[in-house]
C-alpha cells in the first residue's frame, strides 16, 4: 500500500511541478498564441495532478485531501524528478524541458493505461490524449528552434547542455516504482528513439547516453529550486490554513 501511495504521489508531483513551471509563463509568453498554448498545457498537467492527488488521498485516508497533499507537504516529501523543477530560463529551455518530460509521460502513460490498478489506469488513459498534444507541440518547437536561425540554434543547444543531465533520473526506478509493472528498459528505448528522431530533424546532436547525470528528486533530494516553487505555491494555504476556493 505504501508503495502505491508513494508511486501515485510521484506521478502527481511530477505533473504539478511541471504544470506550475508552465503557469509561470501565463501572461509572459513570446506571442499570444504560445502564451495560450503553454497555459493550456499547464492546466492539463495540474488537472492530471489533481486526479492523482485525489486518488492518493483516498488511499491514505486519515482526512488527507488533494489540497493537503499539494499544499502542506515539505520539499523533502516531494517526489518529482529534478527535471521538472528546473527554471524556465528562456523559451528554448522551456520547450526542451517540455519535450523531454512530455515524451517521458507519453510512453509512461501508454504503459500505465494497461496497469492492473484500475484508477491509475483510468487517469493515465485520459491524460494520454492530452499529453499527445503536448508531445506534438514541444517537438515542433524543438525542430523550429534547432533548424531555425543562428540565435535559436545556439539557444536550443545550450538548453540541451543545461537539461540533459536531468534526463537519466527518469529511467532510474525508485523503490516505489519497482512493483509497478513498468518496463523501464522499453520506456527508455522508446524515449531515446523519439528524442533521436526529433533531434535529427532539428539538426541537434544527441549527447552521449553514458554521460553523467543528476538524480535524487524521486527520493526527496531536490535542487534549491523546488523550495522557491513551494514557497510561492503554498504561501496562501500556510498563511490562511484550510482556506478553500
Amino acid at each position: 500500500m505504501d508503495q502505491l501511495i508513494n508511486y501515485t504521489l510521484f506521478l502527481a508531483d511530477n505533473a504539478l511541478i511541471m504544470g506550475h513551471r508552465n503557469s509561470e509563463w501565463c501572461g509572459h509568453g513570446p506571442i499570444l498564441e504560445q502564451d495560450i498554448a503553454i497555459s493550456n498545457i499547464a492546466l492539463d498537467l495540474i488537472g492530471q495532478a489533481r486526479n492523482f492527488y485525489q486518488y492518493a488521498a483516498t488511499l491514505i485516508g486519515n482526512n488527507a485531501t488533494e489540497d493537503s497533499l499539494a499544499y502542506l507537504r515539505d520539499v523533502k516529501e516531494y517526489k518529482n524528478c529534478l527535471l521538472v523543477e528546473q527554471p524556465n530560463a528562456d523559451w528554448a529551455q522551456t520547450v526542451l524541458k517540455q519535450f523531454f518530460f512530455s515524451t517521458f509521460q507519453y510512453y509512461l502513460y501508454q504503459q500505465l493505461q494497461n496497469n492492473n490498478d484500475e484508477q491509475l489506469k483510468a487517469i493515465a488513459a485520459k491524460a494520454l490524449k492530452e499529453v499527445t498534444y503536448h508531445v506534438r507541440w514541444s517537438s515542433e518547437w524543438v525542430i523550429r528552434l534547432g533548424d531555425g536561425t543562428e540565435e535559436s540554434k545556439k539557444r536550443i543547444v545550450k538548453a540541451v547542455d543545461e537539461l540533459w543531465m536531468f534526463t537519466g533520473e527518469l529511467f532510474e526506478p525508485a523503490s516505489y516504482e519497482l512493483n509497478t509493472n513498468i518496463d523501464f528498459i522499453f520506456l527508455k528505448e522508446n524515449w531515446n528513439k523519439r528524442i533521436r528522431s526529433i533531434f535529427a530533424e532539428a539538426t541537434i546532436d544527441v549527447p552521449a547516453e553514458t554521460s553523467w547525470h543528476q538524480s535524487g528528486g524521486k527520493i526527496g533530494n531536490h535542487s534549491e529550486h523546488l523550495g522557491f516553487i513551494l514557497a510561492e505555491m503554498q504561501f496562501l494555504q500556510r498563511a490562511y490554513p484550510n482556506s478553500e476556493w
Binding site: E33, Q34, I36, A37, N40, I41, Y106, T132, Y133, V135, R136, W137, S139, E140, I143, R194, I198, E201
Partner: peptide, 27 residues
Amino acid sequence: SPDSFQKEEAIQCPQCNSYSTRLISHF
C-alpha cells in the same frame, strides 16, 4: 498522434463554409 508537422485535417469555416482554412494553434 504525436507526429510533428503532420498534415492538418481540413476544417470547414463555420462562417462561409470554405474548406480552405489553416491552423493557427492547437491550443
